[in-house]
Design a protein around this nucleic acid. Structure first.
Lengths: 249, 249
DNA sequence: CGCGGTATTGAGACGTATCAAAGGAAGTGG
DNA sequence: CCACTTCCTTTGATACGTCTCAATACCGCG
């Protein structure tokens, strides 16, 4: 179940990118879109479970997630796994590798996924020709940092119940920003939750049960639905994401 | 004990920055140094315990730590505190705020500290005039992200002993990269360690005692000395930092 | 029908938190 | 120079949250 299907053909021209019209993304100027379009060299698809980039790799590519869900993770030598963050459409994949030179974590698809492919070595070109886009890359990195700060706070100082509530409301909010109005389903299983929150799978199960009994969420086997976002955020003691518009590269 | 001493005078011209000659920092071209020098508007000093920037603030400044130690942290509404990362000379302070617009965490000085002050709103100028420096800012953000990934792995998947060993070897390595050869003293107390690792202070104390008995560290009341770096890294199951040269802005 | 991946549940063990108390070092004011 | 405070560290006892082990149930799929 570990399929990656590269194809050079481009189905989605940047000018008609389905993401760009969404509320969350800031408007780009015509030259900016043109540059991004020129920067993009192709698309890549992957099925759930496929490893998109792996730790230690020296990838020549940088991606933007066009559709689907994925997650970043690291593993300890003995196999213990930690999920670092989740990737949703519009997120850059592999920036660390592109900027620093070597990936320090792996990325795996949660659902079927389509990625826009960029040439890593043309990143300087982007900074040179479009300082605004360069700034945007930094913006995205800072935003990721901010999410990690929150996750760290969660792991370090929240109880199992609070953490779980935080994670699910976080993911729900992120998805909601993209699919306004639609019914959101988070495509994760309990092992993912456990590996994200630093909990055992058994205790994760018991904690999710509590949230289910409180009628805050619904578990669907391979996916999760948030029934009461405010309630969840309340349990977590979390304020929610900023509503600021973000760049899309 | 919460002193911040701003002064507009500049004692350290960038051309004679004491950090720049160090091994860890990459060479800058003359125009780059000139720009950074022009970008810098002054210096600021702070004493241990002083809050340099605080959560929610909308700061007009961006800093580089010139000397001393500091740390970033967040707090939950009920007061639980989580240390996110430590700041050492050469680190940018307040980048998130400058790029996104609002600080999401606070920064506090651990030791006496000197900061170079930059005008936040001239950051675009940097990206515009020196794409290479813009790239460097992104590089630094990516590097911070990488450290946070490692901390997350630690909190999520390492035991108390492993975590503590990781933290101290991490800080020791970072300091070592700056003060090659010198005897490194990490200016933290056990409360900081506890708040970094998500442990209670009592358990932190007992864990530090174990490391002390193993003769891996020495505790000095208000500071810590690493006696056996390899031993510590072994306990932590950690590979160490990359030896790559970094930019200094 | 049987199988692999996933979710569920109970029981006991272990790691870490909490509570409580005391010792040491540094600084302050009398 | 001594009492006194304050901050930091240390230690023991007990409580609690989470882990591990073990077993069962569930479900889609070949």
């Amino acid at each position: 179940m570990s399929l990656i299907i590269p194809h050079t053909g481009r189905r989605v021209p940047c000018e008609q990118c389905p993401l760009r019209p969404l509320e969350t993304f800031r408007d780009f100027t015509a030259p900016e879109i043109k540059f991004v379009s020129h920067f993009k060299t192709g698309e890549m698809m992957a099925e759930p479970g496929a490893v998109i980039v792996s730790e230690g790799a020296h990838s020549a590519h940088l991606y933007t997630l066009l559709s689907g869900w994925a997650f970043r993770f690291k593993t300890l030598p003995d196999g213990r796994r930690q999920v670092l963050n989740y990737l949703l459409p519009g997120d850059l994949v592999g920036l660390q590798g592109s900027v620093i030179g070597e990936m320090d974590h792996s990325v795996e698809a949660l659902s079927s996924v389509v990625l826009c492919v960029f040439q890593r070595d043309r990143l300087d070109e982007l900074f040179g020709a479009h300082p605004g886009l360069g700034f945007d890359v930094t913006w995205l990195a800072a935003q990721e940092e901010r999410m990690l700060d929150n996750h760290l706070l969660s792991l370090g100082r929240r109880t199992a119940l609070e953490r779980t509530a935080y994670l699910l409301s976080f993911l729900h909010e992120r998805a909601l920003a993209l699919e306004m109005g639609k019914r959101v389903q988070i495509p994760i299983n309990q092992q993912h939750v456990a590996d994200t929150l630093g909990l055992s799978i058994v205790h994760t199960n018991k904690t999710l049960r509590k949230l289910t009994n409180m009628e805050l969420i619904r578990w669907l086997g391979g996916a999760c639905e948030v029934l009461d976002l405010d309630g969840l955020m309340d349990v977590a003691g979390w304020e929610g994401l900023s509503r600021r518009k973000r760049p899309l590269i």
